[in-house]
């Protein structure tokens, strides 16, 4: 199974490029079992929302 370190890398990259279906699947499986990474993903999404609202995006 993918470890958390690798998962966090993918959770960053998914904000910068489309993941392959293999990567998406591996990440999804990992996050189903890992509450820490599940939270991490929510927090990444929040960071993006915060930054977008900061830069005048409506």
């Amino acid at each position: 199974m993918m470890n958390c370190k690798e998962a966090t890398q993918l959770m960053s990259q998914e904000l910068d490029r489309p993941l392959t279906w293999r990567e998406r699947l591996a990440l999804r499986l990992h996050n189903l079992m890992c509450s820490g990474c599940h939270q991490y993903r929510q927090q990444m999404a929040f960071l993006r929302r915060a930054l977008r609202s900061r830069s005048g995006g409506d």
Binding site: C34, C37, Q39, Q42, Q43, F46, R49
Partner: peptide, 24 residues
């Protein structure tokens, strides 16, 4: 932040942030 196997070290495991939208 991670243990030797690359999993979250217990004390660094991300927890739920309280009301993040409210913070904005």
């Amino acid at each position: 932040l991670f243990d030797r196997r690359g999993f979250w070290a217990t004390e660094h495991k991300p927890h739920r942030w309280a009301d993040p939208e409210d913070s904005l």
